[in-house]
Simulated assay, not measured.
Amino acid sequence: MPPRKTLKVVQAAPAAGGQTARWVTLCLDYLRTECHLAANSISAYTRDLKRLQEWLGDRAVPNLTVRDLSNYLAWLQQKKLAPTSISRHMAALKVFFRFLQVEGVLKENPAELLATQKQWQRVPDVLSAKLVKELVGAPQPYDPFPRRDRALLELLYATGCRVSEVSSLQMRDLHLEERHCLVHGKGSKQRLVPLGEGALNTLRDYLATERPLFVAAARTPPNWVLLSRRGKQLRREAIWELIKRYVARVGGPASASPHTMRHSFATHLLSGGADLRQVQELLGHASIATTQIYTHVDQTRLKKVHQQYHPRA
């Protein structure tokens, strides 16, 4: 955590639960105002620390031991959370305890003694190119808003964007004549992502037909590209529901999600011969280690590379 001026935290007499809630609020304010974390990161910390408060109950935080915190880990596992989710909860716990140590609430930090949970690296779901083609053509005239939904599907697959990035994409970031869009990713980082012919055509169709209807229903002119029927931002939850509906229609896996489109985008690029660094840039990954998971997915490409370049293949 970056250095900061110490806030005076008054340890008065309120109940342990109330005092913990106050410390959590101060910690979130610190992450928001001094660490300048993105809104989505703050939301994640808020959810994780709320679960920590649920487990704590009336326990006094300064009295917790390493054994107590290990019991918290066991409690999270009993909740049937995914390993990645548990790891995120433990990271939030460590940030919170480090904050309390900086504030002088804690003399020693038992959270630092917790071992980092070893995560099983999951191979992401990937749709075949044939299934993706069926998926983007799944919206039909009998659907409420087929042009918007087709534009959404094309946009997700054409750009490999995260669902939050597609949801927050604004009209000023869409450059159809130049055949690209400006994406605002994690940590307020921006990247240019090209748009293919399929995405361009469906976007132009949607912008000329259905979007004006949504704009007319809005109280104030909306800036987002993808809108709800009332002219509001198409929420991430709504995008999830749409993806689930259309994937089921074409017989795709029940586990598919908007992120599956991102995984498919990356894997298909690598299958076509794209360089890993180029895929990293298009996905907006800060580290190439994150992108490398797709080399495990596309084993056929690795076999071709081995056969082509190894002297004894």
Rank of each mutant, 00 (worst) to 15 (best):
N40P: 03
D205E: 15
Q292C: 06
P2L: 11
L135F: 06
H259R: 15
T295D: 11
F96C: 09
W23T: 04
W224E: 14
S188K: 14
H175Y: 08
E54P: 06
L227M: 13
K107Y: 07
H306C: 08
E54Q: 15
M261R: 03
V61G: 09
K50A: 15
A12C: 11
K5R: 15
T291D: 02
L174D: 05
Q190R: 13
W23S: 05
G198L: 02
K304C: 01
L114P: 04
A266M: 05
H310R: 10
R98T: 13
V247A: 05
Q292Y: 08
L31Q: 01
P221L: 15
Y142N: 13
Q280C: 06
R191E: 02
A138E: 00
L76P: 02
L56S: 07
D173R: 03
A289V: 15
D58M: 11
E210T: 08
E241C: 12
Y246N: 05
L269E: 04
R301N: 06
F265L: 02
Q292W: 09
H268D: 06
L64F: 07
R236K: 15
K8M: 06
Q77K: 11
A92D: 06
R162S: 06
I288P: 09
G251P: 12
F214K: 04
F99L: 06
V166L: 13
R150S: 12
L213H: 14
K5N: 12
L26M: 12
P253G: 10
H310F: 15
L192G: 07
G187A: 13
C27Y: 05
A289Y: 04
E154Q: 10
R51T: 03
K8G: 07
A256G: 07
D29E: 13
R191V: 03
A248W: 00
R249P: 02
V305S: 08
P311E: 04
L155Y: 00
S264I: 01
G57P: 05
A91H: 08
D173K: 03
K8W: 00
